[in-house]
């Protein structure tokens, strides 16, 4: 069965780019515009991988990432963060949210800073799904 990859990003161009890379590499893409939609799709579709932006309206990738990694049902789904926010800033923000009373969460399986080359994204997807 073809593996499903959920792309969560508010930028339609990034979703187009990511879904094209996913399809070219033989996987099945699913799209969401924000973390709220992303969580709904995650529950419905049970994807094998999530590619997640950090700053989005309504519900950010920060929140969705924490929801994934703190729920035993979803915690094993690998997450690739694809964002204009640096990895250092993302990790610092996660640490702060833990210090502010949130649960401790692991680092994402991979972190790619925008802009990213198709080959780089493809390699990250294959690695996460292998």
């Amino acid at each position: 069965m073809t593996k499903k990859v959920l792309v969560v990003d508010d930028d339609p161009d990034v979703r187009l780019f990511s879904t094209a890379v996913i399809e070219e590499n033989g996987f099945n893409p699913i799209e969401a515009e924000n973390g709220e939609e992303g969580m709904q799709l995650l529950k419905l579709e049970k994807p094998d991988l999530v590619i997640l932006d950090v700053l989005m309206p309504r519900e950010s990738g920060v929140r969705m990432f924490r929801q994934i990694k703190t729920n035993p049902k979803f915690a094993k789904i690998p997450v690739i963060i694809l964002s204009g926010i640096t990895k250092k800033s993302f990790l610092r923000s996660q640490k702060a949210l833990t210090e502010f009373g949130g649960a401790e969460v692991p680092e994402p399986e991979n972190y790619l800073e925008k802009p990213v080359e198709p080959e780089e994204l493809a390699a990250a997807i294959k690695s996460a799904l292998s």
Partner: peptide
């Protein structure tokens, strides 16, 4: 068409300040 509450505010805030 947006929405914000305290939790969303804090999520954005920590990332923006770090960045």
């Amino acid at each position: 068409r947006g929405y914000i509450d305290e939790q969303i505010y804090i999520d954005y805030l920590v990332v923006l300040i770090a960045q």
